[in-house]
Nucleic acid binder design. Structure first.
Lengths: 240, 240
DNA sequence: GCTGTTTGCGTACACTGTACGTTGTAGCAC
DNA sequence: GTGCTACAACGTACAGTGTACGCAAACAGC
């Protein structure tokens, strides 16, 4: 037992200072993010993670309560990558605020694209500090945009929903129709099921996707939402 | 072994015709939906499902390829509950189409609320027949709304994203702040983390949620999107 | 009758997250 | 120094997961 410690003569400071970095909360989370970045969430088991770090499984639990907490920390680390606009603290004109909201949303989307495993987790995990900061900035910008408070409230939801939801749906498409994935077979079944005669619109829609000419539709819908919000400034008496 | 079959004298037609309904694809899916409806997705294991049906685990695999297929079928059954508007086949005015789109979206949301487990699965599973029908109707309505084809394309995404994304985010809130859930402790941690001084906007936003005055914001954002789409009719030359 | 196919069943395997107990060691009081 | 406490790393063990495999009973067509 403990095969690595009593090999050399030096039983003091054994192997720990040799090459493997010490186990910390941060190193664990970073390794987990790296492991999920290539290999997806499926590749992230506690055993696998421990092996990659050069430790045994249960040692991780000295720094992380359970896997859910690890996932929370991972999402939060990724949330910290979202760029914060400068000058958000100063007084702003409405248009400037909207432009900043747009920038934050685009940055958040970029981060979710860079870490494809993060989008599904985003809603399943409680916000950590970085994500709360993200929320705070966005809500602050909405406040400074001069919108009525209720409009600001669900405007926030509309924007964040769009960022996460759009990316999620896009990734589903990608993974389902990617040749490199083993889901290729299922994609075939799908395309067989929908024959052109019964579902012409759906077939056309899917082909539009496969043609790849849906590039900037994320930003188009984002602008759609933002423009709509600014239009709801005064009375708010619209709808139904 | 096989304790249920050789109890009575009749080894023919043993127990099968006695009381338990025969195992079919449909009965399995329905039982799975029922099981997930109360108990959530966590309660839905193949073993648990088999037990509830009065069969053994591996018998299910005679009717369902694997669990992923089962989940797909479950989502599809639920998708079939979405009400289809009458008269969608006939020629429509633009406003009528938009109204129908709105009705379909609201119905879809109702279904997702009735089956809280379905929203997270919605994006993780390939569309089955019922969901393709749903897509077809929606896309058809978008076409009849007189929108340019690209606007119709991402309008479809904007609406479906909103339906699924909004419900998902709402359910996360619910489950994270519900007293009945064992996540209560985590919710406290969350509220402790965000002190009012550092994150005033976030605290105010969360309190707005806890006060429950966010009732119809789903439909408000939906109208926002739909109104925005109809405004993008002609040139499409707006916003960056 | 025989034969091939379907359906239910039991066992078994690889894998998951993690509870629990043991062990070496660092820090501190005496 | 000795003793005590705290903790990080470890190994084992357990309950739970999805499902591959093989066997037996029931039913189909000949």
């Amino acid at each position: 037992m403990r095969p690595n410690q009593q090999i050399g003569g030096q039983t003091l400071v054994p192997e720990t200072s040799k090459e493997r970095p010490p186990l910390t909360r941060e190193s664990i989370v970073s390794a987990a993010v790296a492991l999920a970045d290539d290999g997806g969430l499926r590749a992230l088991s506690m055993r696998n993670l421990a092996k990659h770090l050069g430790y045994e499984v249960m040692s991780l639990y000295n720094h992380v309560a359970n896997k859910h907490e690890l996932l929370t920390l991972m999402v939060d680390q990724v949330a910290g990558e979202i760029t914060r606009p400068q000058g958000a603290d100063e007084p702003l004109a409405g248009e400037e605020s909207i432009a900043m909201i747009r920038a934050v949303a685009v940055s958040a989307r970029d981060v979710l694209v860079a870490h494809p495993w993060a989008a599904p987790l985003w809603q399943r995990v409680l916000p950590g500090l970085a994500r709360i900061r993200f929320m705070e900035i966005l809500l602050c910008l909405f406040d400074k945009a001069g919108l009525p408070s209720d409009v600001a409230h669900y405007g926030f939801h509309a924007v964040t929903n769009h960022v996460v939801g759009y990316t999620l749906q896009e990734q589903e498409m990608m993974s389902n129709f990617d040749e490199f994935d083993d889901l290729d077979q299922r994609a075939r079944e799908f395309l067989v099921d929908i024959d052109v005669e019964r579902f012409p619109y759906t077939v056309a829609h899917v082909e539009q996707h496969l043609a790849g000419d849906t590039g900037s539709s994320f930003e188009l819908v984002l602008d759609l939402i933002l423009d709509g919000l600014t239009r709801l400034d005064g009375t708010g008496s619209r709808g139904r």
